[in-house]
Write a protein that binds this DNA or RNA. Structure first.
Lengths: 120, 120
DNA sequence: ATCATATATGAGCATTTGTTCATATGTTAG
DNA sequence: CTAACATATGAACAAATGCTCATATATGAT
Protein backbone atom coordinates (compact mmCIF):
# COMPACT_ATOMS: atom_id res chain seq x y z
CA UNK A 1 0.00 0.00 0.00
CA UNK A 2 1.40 3.34 -1.02
CA UNK A 3 1.20 6.25 1.38
CA UNK A 4 -1.60 8.71 0.61
CA UNK A 5 -0.24 11.70 -1.32
CA UNK A 6 -0.58 14.85 0.74
CA UNK A 7 0.67 18.38 0.44
CA UNK A 8 3.79 18.37 2.60
CA UNK A 9 4.92 14.82 1.99
CA UNK A 10 7.88 13.61 0.03
CA UNK A 11 7.02 11.10 -2.63
CA UNK A 12 9.24 8.58 -0.95
CA UNK A 13 9.40 9.02 2.79
CA UNK A 14 12.97 8.64 3.88
CA UNK A 15 12.17 8.77 7.52
CA UNK A 16 11.45 5.26 8.63
CA UNK A 17 8.93 4.37 11.26
CA UNK A 18 11.49 3.53 13.92
CA UNK A 19 13.37 6.79 13.43
CA UNK A 20 10.20 8.84 13.64
CA UNK A 21 9.44 7.02 16.86
CA UNK A 22 12.94 7.65 18.18
CA UNK A 23 12.73 11.33 17.33
CA UNK A 24 9.37 11.74 19.03
CA UNK A 25 10.70 9.85 22.03
CA UNK A 26 13.98 11.70 22.45
CA UNK A 27 12.80 15.16 21.46
CA UNK A 28 12.21 17.22 24.61
CA UNK A 29 8.89 18.93 25.11
CA UNK A 30 8.03 21.95 23.03
CA UNK A 31 8.17 24.15 26.12
CA UNK A 32 11.65 22.97 27.11
CA UNK A 33 12.97 23.56 23.62
CA UNK A 34 11.51 27.03 23.69
CA UNK A 35 13.24 27.77 26.98
CA UNK A 36 16.46 26.37 25.60
CA UNK A 37 16.25 28.68 22.59
CA UNK A 38 15.52 31.60 24.93
CA UNK A 39 18.64 30.75 26.89
CA UNK A 40 20.88 30.61 23.84
CA UNK A 41 19.36 33.83 22.56
CA UNK A 42 21.15 35.51 25.46
CA UNK A 43 24.49 34.25 24.19
CA UNK A 44 23.61 35.46 20.72
CA UNK A 45 24.55 39.10 21.23
CA UNK A 46 28.11 40.37 21.43
CA UNK A 47 27.34 42.92 24.12
CA UNK A 48 26.08 40.22 26.44
CA UNK A 49 28.96 37.93 25.49
CA UNK A 50 31.37 40.68 26.46
CA UNK A 51 29.61 41.24 29.75
CA UNK A 52 29.97 37.57 30.58
CA UNK A 53 33.64 37.56 29.63
CA UNK A 54 34.27 40.60 31.80
CA UNK A 55 32.57 38.87 34.72
CA UNK A 56 34.91 35.91 34.30
CA UNK A 57 37.59 38.07 35.90
CA UNK A 58 35.71 39.57 38.79
CA UNK A 59 32.39 40.72 40.09
CA UNK A 60 31.73 44.20 38.84
CA UNK A 61 29.27 47.07 39.12
CA UNK A 62 27.15 48.33 36.25
CA UNK A 63 29.18 51.46 35.76
CA UNK A 64 32.46 49.56 35.60
CA UNK A 65 31.15 47.22 32.94
CA UNK A 66 29.83 50.16 30.96
CA UNK A 67 33.24 51.77 31.09
CA UNK A 68 35.12 48.63 30.12
CA UNK A 69 32.87 48.05 27.14
CA UNK A 70 32.59 51.71 26.21
CA UNK A 71 28.81 51.69 26.37
CA UNK A 72 26.14 53.62 28.26
CA UNK A 73 24.99 52.63 31.72
CA UNK A 74 21.48 52.23 30.40
CA UNK A 75 22.40 49.83 27.63
CA UNK A 76 24.37 47.68 30.06
CA UNK A 77 21.65 47.76 32.67
CA UNK A 78 19.09 46.56 30.17
CA UNK A 79 21.31 43.65 29.19
CA UNK A 80 22.15 42.76 32.77
CA UNK A 81 18.45 42.58 33.39
CA UNK A 82 18.06 39.95 30.69
CA UNK A 83 21.03 37.94 31.95
CA UNK A 84 19.74 38.18 35.50
CA UNK A 85 16.26 36.99 34.56
CA UNK A 86 17.69 33.84 33.05
CA UNK A 87 19.84 33.26 36.11
CA UNK A 88 23.10 33.50 34.21
CA UNK A 89 24.31 36.19 36.58
CA UNK A 90 23.51 37.16 40.14
CA UNK A 91 23.94 40.41 42.03
CA UNK A 92 24.51 41.81 45.46
CA UNK A 93 23.88 45.34 46.61
CA UNK A 94 26.48 47.32 48.53
CA UNK A 95 25.18 50.76 49.27
CA UNK A 96 24.42 52.57 46.05
CA UNK A 97 26.39 50.07 44.03
CA UNK A 98 25.16 46.77 42.64
CA UNK A 99 27.77 44.13 41.94
CA UNK A 100 27.10 41.53 39.31
CA UNK A 101 28.80 38.17 38.99
CA UNK A 102 28.39 34.88 37.14
CA UNK A 103 25.79 32.62 38.67
CA UNK A 104 26.67 29.37 37.09
CA UNK A 105 29.50 27.18 35.87
CA UNK A 106 27.49 26.33 32.76
CA UNK A 107 28.10 29.80 31.40
CA UNK A 108 31.79 29.16 31.12
CA UNK A 109 31.35 25.69 29.66
CA UNK A 110 28.89 26.88 27.05
CA UNK A 111 31.10 29.77 25.98
CA UNK A 112 34.17 27.54 25.86
CA UNK A 113 32.42 25.01 23.65
CA UNK A 114 31.27 27.78 21.35
CA UNK A 115 34.81 29.11 21.22
CA UNK A 116 36.13 25.72 20.21
CA UNK A 117 33.77 25.67 17.29
CA UNK A 118 34.50 29.23 16.22
CA UNK A 119 38.26 28.72 16.52
CA UNK A 120 38.25 26.06 13.80
CA UNK B 1 44.40 63.26 43.83
CA UNK B 2 40.77 62.67 42.90
CA UNK B 3 39.95 61.27 39.50
CA UNK B 4 38.78 63.88 36.99
CA UNK B 5 34.97 63.87 36.75
CA UNK B 6 33.86 62.71 33.33
CA UNK B 7 30.56 61.72 31.83
CA UNK B 8 30.56 57.93 31.96
CA UNK B 9 32.70 57.42 35.04
CA UNK B 10 31.63 56.26 38.45
CA UNK B 11 32.66 58.62 41.16
CA UNK B 12 34.63 55.84 42.77
CA UNK B 13 36.05 53.41 40.25
CA UNK B 14 35.55 49.90 41.58
CA UNK B 15 37.54 48.27 38.85
CA UNK B 16 41.12 48.20 39.97
CA UNK B 17 44.05 48.57 37.64
CA UNK B 18 45.04 44.92 37.74
CA UNK B 19 41.55 43.72 36.96
CA UNK B 20 41.20 46.07 34.03
CA UNK B 21 44.48 44.73 32.75
CA UNK B 22 43.36 41.16 33.26
CA UNK B 23 40.11 41.80 31.41
CA UNK B 24 41.85 43.41 28.47
CA UNK B 25 44.32 40.57 28.41
CA UNK B 26 41.87 37.69 28.61
CA UNK B 27 39.09 39.19 26.52
CA UNK B 28 39.20 37.71 23.01
CA UNK B 29 39.31 40.05 20.04
CA UNK B 30 36.23 41.95 19.06
CA UNK B 31 35.94 39.94 15.87
CA UNK B 32 36.08 36.59 17.65
CA UNK B 33 33.41 37.68 20.11
CA UNK B 34 31.23 38.77 17.24
CA UNK B 35 31.62 35.37 15.57
CA UNK B 36 30.86 33.68 18.86
CA UNK B 37 27.65 35.67 19.21
CA UNK B 38 26.74 34.81 15.62
CA UNK B 39 27.21 31.14 16.42
CA UNK B 40 25.01 31.24 19.52
CA UNK B 41 22.40 33.20 17.61
CA UNK B 42 21.82 30.01 15.64
CA UNK B 43 20.95 28.15 18.84
CA UNK B 44 18.62 30.96 19.81
CA UNK B 45 15.66 29.88 17.73
CA UNK B 46 13.42 26.94 18.56
CA UNK B 47 12.99 25.90 14.95
CA UNK B 48 16.74 25.49 14.53
CA UNK B 49 17.03 23.81 17.92
CA UNK B 50 14.41 21.29 16.83
CA UNK B 51 16.22 20.66 13.58
CA UNK B 52 19.41 19.88 15.48
CA UNK B 53 17.60 17.56 17.87
CA UNK B 54 16.00 15.73 14.97
CA UNK B 55 19.42 15.29 13.37
CA UNK B 56 20.69 13.71 16.58
CA UNK B 57 18.76 10.61 15.58
CA UNK B 58 19.69 10.29 11.96
CA UNK B 59 20.62 12.13 8.80
CA UNK B 60 17.49 13.39 7.13
CA UNK B 61 16.27 15.14 4.02
CA UNK B 62 14.66 18.57 4.01
CA UNK B 63 11.21 17.25 3.38
CA UNK B 64 11.41 14.76 6.25
CA UNK B 65 12.47 17.44 8.68
CA UNK B 66 9.66 19.69 7.49
CA UNK B 67 7.19 16.88 8.07
CA UNK B 68 8.51 16.02 11.51
CA UNK B 69 8.36 19.63 12.64
CA UNK B 70 5.12 20.41 10.85
CA UNK B 71 6.61 23.30 8.92
CA UNK B 72 6.97 24.22 5.27
CA UNK B 73 9.85 23.03 3.13
CA UNK B 74 10.86 26.61 2.47
CA UNK B 75 11.07 27.60 6.11
CA UNK B 76 13.22 24.57 6.90
CA UNK B 77 15.43 25.11 3.88
CA UNK B 78 16.12 28.69 4.93
CA UNK B 79 17.12 27.56 8.41
CA UNK B 80 19.24 24.69 7.12
CA UNK B 81 21.09 27.23 5.04
CA UNK B 82 21.99 29.22 8.15
CA UNK B 83 23.09 26.12 10.05
CA UNK B 84 25.10 24.96 7.06
CA UNK B 85 26.88 28.29 6.68
CA UNK B 86 28.10 28.08 10.24
CA UNK B 87 29.26 24.52 9.73
CA UNK B 88 26.94 23.10 12.34
CA UNK B 89 25.51 20.68 9.80
CA UNK B 90 26.77 19.12 6.61
CA UNK B 91 24.94 17.60 3.66
CA UNK B 92 25.25 15.04 0.94
CA UNK B 93 23.24 14.81 -2.23
CA UNK B 94 21.62 11.56 -3.34
CA UNK B 95 19.73 12.10 -6.55
CA UNK B 96 17.03 14.69 -6.00
CA UNK B 97 17.32 14.37 -2.27
CA UNK B 98 19.72 16.23 0.01
CA UNK B 99 20.52 14.61 3.32
CA UNK B 100 21.55 16.77 6.23
CA UNK B 101 23.44 15.66 9.31
CA UNK B 102 25.30 17.13 12.25
CA UNK B 103 28.79 18.26 11.41
CA UNK B 104 30.27 18.54 14.81
CA UNK B 105 30.38 17.08 18.31
CA UNK B 106 30.27 20.56 19.78
CA UNK B 107 26.64 20.90 18.81
CA UNK B 108 25.65 18.15 21.18
CA UNK B 109 27.86 19.42 23.99
CA UNK B 110 26.55 22.96 23.69
CA UNK B 111 22.93 21.86 23.65
CA UNK B 112 23.50 19.51 26.59
CA UNK B 113 25.07 22.26 28.67
CA UNK B 114 22.20 24.56 27.85
CA UNK B 115 19.76 21.83 28.84
CA UNK B 116 21.46 21.40 32.19
CA UNK B 117 20.96 25.07 32.89
CA UNK B 118 17.35 25.12 31.74
CA UNK B 119 16.50 21.99 33.69
CA UNK B 120 17.31 23.65 37.01
C1' DA C 1 14.06 67.66 54.24
C1' DT C 2 17.52 68.35 49.62
C1' DC C 3 21.21 66.94 46.67
C1' DA C 4 24.23 63.72 44.43
C1' DT C 5 25.30 59.20 42.89
C1' DA C 6 24.24 54.40 41.08
C1' DT C 7 21.04 51.73 38.95
C1' DA C 8 16.52 50.44 36.74
C1' DT C 9 13.03 51.03 33.45
C1' DG C 10 9.50 52.53 29.91
C1' DA C 11 8.76 54.52 25.30
C1' DG C 12 10.38 55.27 20.80
C1' DC C 13 12.95 53.98 16.84
C1' DA C 14 15.96 51.71 13.62
C1' DT C 15 17.74 47.21 12.62
C1' DT C 16 17.42 42.37 12.50
C1' DT C 17 14.98 38.11 12.13
C1' DG C 18 11.75 34.21 10.71
C1' DT C 19 8.13 33.05 7.97
C1' DT C 20 5.36 32.98 3.65
C1' DC C 21 4.84 33.17 -1.18
C1' DA C 22 6.40 32.83 -5.70
C1' DT C 23 9.89 31.27 -8.44
C1' DA C 24 14.43 29.37 -9.73
C1' DT C 25 17.68 25.51 -9.77
C1' DG C 26 18.91 20.76 -9.93
C1' DT C 27 17.97 15.87 -10.68
C1' DT C 28 15.54 11.86 -12.54
C1' DA C 29 12.16 9.51 -15.46
C1' DG C 30 9.88 9.03 -19.68
C1' DC D 1 13.22 17.49 -25.13
C1' DT D 2 9.18 17.76 -21.16
C1' DA D 3 7.18 16.62 -16.72
C1' DA D 4 7.54 15.71 -11.93
C1' DC D 5 9.83 16.09 -7.71
C1' DA D 6 13.24 17.93 -4.12
C1' DT D 7 15.51 21.76 -2.75
C1' DA D 8 17.17 26.66 -2.82
C1' DT D 9 16.42 31.44 -2.84
C1' DG D 10 14.80 36.37 -3.27
C1' DA D 11 11.25 39.76 -1.91
C1' DA D 12 7.96 41.23 1.31
C1' DC D 13 6.12 41.74 5.76
C1' DA D 14 5.21 41.17 10.64
C1' DA D 15 7.46 40.41 14.98
C1' DA D 16 11.39 40.70 17.92
C1' DT D 17 15.59 43.00 19.36
C1' DG D 18 19.08 46.49 21.11
C1' DC D 19 20.10 51.04 21.79
C1' DT D 20 19.00 55.93 23.19
C1' DC D 21 16.75 59.23 25.81
C1' DA D 22 14.21 60.73 29.57
C1' DT D 23 12.84 59.61 33.93
C1' DA D 24 12.03 56.78 38.08
C1' DT D 25 13.87 54.40 42.11
C1' DA D 26 17.25 53.53 45.75
C1' DT D 27 20.83 54.67 48.80
C1' DG D 28 23.98 57.81 51.24
C1' DA D 29 25.62 62.43 52.52
C1' DT D 30 24.61 67.00 54.17
Amino acid sequence: MTAPKEAEHCDYIHVHEDIVEQVNQNMPDEEILYDLAELFKLFGDSTRIKILYVLFESEMCVCDIAQLLGMTQSAISHQLRALKQSKLIKYRREGKTVFYSLADGHVRTILDQGMEHVAE
